[in-house]
């Protein structure tokens, strides 16, 4: 169970996240929707401990989040992999939090972690490419390695910050499919921020809509009406969805 209470984060005069509270039961797949600058990334970074909140608290299974921890994994928009290393070695870095310095330097990871790295690569459909250098992979494949790295952490909470924003529509759909599949297989609580409403509706279970740092919607697929999307994004996005629906 993830509990966020009265969370706020400001950068100078800018209130990025404003008094946000919600809970996520184990295994729920939550999509955070909102325009650029709505506070989605800041919220995720606070949950991961990469950014310190100005006010409020976050707890995972009754343990407070005070900094980066190995049971909260993050998939970044730009994948942030080590391009010189193979997919397998990149995935293995997910186990650094529970491996001591000497063992990680000499490559003496636990055999279970090595197996987990390969299992995670299989989950994202890259087992055959495990030995391939990440720098030679396509954007979609790189993002899938990023997901594998997050899974190797064996997290209680999986965060994905705009994981498909820099991918073409077909790759975006495939990558989100892998995220959802991995979350379902492992019963993972997941919080993904997404820009594309159509992809969000396809893969999300519960939706949190943010605007100007505040939560303005929290509900399930049936509640996510065109009017709600209109409120989150303004009319342009909604018009696109309407015309898509009509077509």
């Amino acid at each position: 169970m993830i509990e966020v209470s009265n969370l706020s984060k400001s950068y100078g005069d800018i209130q990025a996240v404003d008094d946000v509270s919600f809970t996520i039961p184990d295994g729920e797949f939550v999509v955070v929707l909102g325009e650029s600058g709505a506070g989605k990334s800041t919220l995720l970074r606070c949950l991961n401990g990469l950014t310190e909140p100005t006010e409020g608290s976050i707890s995972i299974n009754d343990e407070s989040v005070l900094g980066p921890r190995d049971d909260v994994a993050m998939v970044f928009q730009q994948h942030y992999l080590i391009e010189e290393m193979s997919a397998y070695n990149n995935a293995l870095t997910g186990s650094l939090g529970r491996t001591n310095l000497f063992d990680s330097l000499t490559g003496r990871y636990e055999i279970e972690d090595k197996h987990e790295a390969l299992r995670s690569l299989r989950t994202v459909g890259l087992l055959d490419e495990a030995g391939q250098s990440v720098g030679q992979m396509s954007g979609g494949q790189q993002q899938r390695v990023g997901i594998a790295r997050a899974l190797v952490q064996q997290p209680n909470l999986l965060l994905a910050d705009e994981p498909v924003a820099s991918l073409d529509p077909a790759s975006a759909e495939r990558v989100m499919g892998y995220v959802r599949q991995a979350a379902d297989e492992r019963g993972l609580s997941t919080l993904a921020s997404l820009h594309q409403v159509n992809i969000a509706r396809e893969f999300g279970e519960r939706f949190i809509g943010m605007k100007d740092g505040e939560i303005i919607f929290d509900g399930y697929r049936d509640d996510l009406t065109v009017d709600v999307i209109d409120e989150i994004y303004g009319t342009i996005e909604t018009d696109a969805i309407r015309s898509e629906a009509e077509a």
Partner: peptide, 28 residues
């Protein structure tokens, strides 16, 4: 690049691991 260093940090890696895996591996 800062990104991979942050990503390694987000796995719960310690300081020396962040330097070695996040930074040095980028410039091998």
């Amino acid at each position: 690049e800062d990104g991979p260093i942050e990503a390694i940090g987000s796995t719960g890696a310690n300081g020396p691991q962040r330097v070695i895996f996040g930074m040095l591996s980028q410039v091998a």
